Computed example of a mutant assay.
Amino acid sequence: MATIGLDRLYYAPITEVPVTGEETYGPPVLLAKAISAELSVELAEATLYADDGAAEIIKEFKNGKLTLGVDDIGRAAAETLTGATTDDNGVLISASEDGGAPVAIGFRAKKANGKYRYFWLYRVKFGVPSTNLATKGDSITFSTPTIEGTVSRRNKPDGNGKHPWKAEVNEDDSGVLPATITGWYTAVYEPTFAAG
C-alpha cells in the first residue's frame, strides 16, 4: 500500500563489543522533524552459467544509501551523527578529521488507510549534512538540511544466525502484536525467532 506521510524520526547510538563488533543499542533519541527519507539499496549479484544458461543467480544486500531531509539537525544530533564538536563558546565545529559513529535509525510512514509502516535501519553511518541557503525574495522559501548516510548490515547476528540491516512492519498486518508497535521507539527492535 502506498504511503502518504513520514514522521517520528529517531536515532539510537550504538556501542560495539571490542572483539566481535556486535552492537548494543542505546535508547532511541528524537532526531528531528522528518521532511523526507529516501532509501536506495545496492545488491551484490552473481550468476553462474552452466549448460548454456543461468544455473544459479545470487542477489544479496551489499549496502544502502539513506538520504534524510529534516527541519533542523540540532547540535547534540550533529555531534553524534557526524563527529562534530562544540567549542567552549557553544559553537559547533566540523573538522576534516571528523567521523560520526554509526547509529540505528527509526521512523514511520503513514499509509493511505491511516495505519503506519514502521522501520529500523540497524546501522547507518552519516556524513556531513548539506545545507542549501537562498536569499529572501518576493516569496518565502524554506531552506532545510539534508544528511546522507550509508546503510550496512549489523555485525550482531539475529536468532537465525543472519545479519539484518532493516526491520519493517505494518501495524495492520496479521500476527503483529500491539506491544511491538507501542514499544517501537522505546528500544531498537530486536528480531525474535522461535527455537526450532
Rank of each mutant, 00 (worst) to 15 (best):
I4S: 13
R108V: 01
T144E: 15
T180I: 10
F119Q: 07
Y189V: 11
A78W: 08
A32T: 02
K59T: 03
I105D: 00
F126G: 02
I14R: 01
A2N: 11
E23G: 00
F126M: 07
Y49R: 14
V19E: 09
D72Y: 13
S36K: 13
K59P: 03
P129A: 04
G53I: 04
Y25T: 05
G114I: 07
V176L: 01
L30K: 12
A134Q: 07
V29T: 01
E38A: 11
T67M: 08
A194P: 04
G183R: 01
V103N: 02
G127S: 10
V19P: 04
R123C: 05
N89C: 09
G90E: 15
F119S: 04
R117M: 10
T85M: 05
D51A: 10
A187G: 06
S36Q: 13
M1L: 12
R75F: 09
L31V: 04
D87S: 06
S94L: 12
K33R: 11
E168H: 04
T141K: 08
N132D: 12
P145D: 08
Y116E: 14
G83E: 10
E56P: 02
A112M: 14
G137A: 07
I14C: 01
D173Q: 06
E16Q: 13
P191Y: 00
V124G: 05
V70Y: 02
L48A: 10
L133F: 11
G26M: 02
T182V: 06
F119C: 03
P18H: 03
F107T: 03
V169D: 04
G99S: 12
D173A: 05
S94G: 09
A44I: 08
G196K: 15
Y49F: 15
F126T: 09
R108M: 08
L30I: 11
Y189T: 13
I35R: 15
T144L: 15
A77M: 00
A32G: 04
S174P: 14
P102V: 01
Y122F: 07
G196E: 15
F193C: 00
P129D: 04
F126Q: 05
Y116G: 10
L68K: 03
T144W: 14
A109G: 04
T15P: 01
G183P: 01
V188N: 03
T192A: 10
T135H: 07
G5Q: 15
W184E: 01
V176T: 05
T3F: 14
K62A: 10
P18I: 01
V103K: 00
S96Q: 13
K115I: 13
V128Y: 13
A95K: 10
A179N: 12
G175Q: 12
Y25C: 06
G21N: 12
T86V: 15
P145I: 06
V169S: 06
E79P: 00
L92N: 00
D87P: 06
V103Y: 03
D98C: 02
N63Q: 14
Y10T: 05
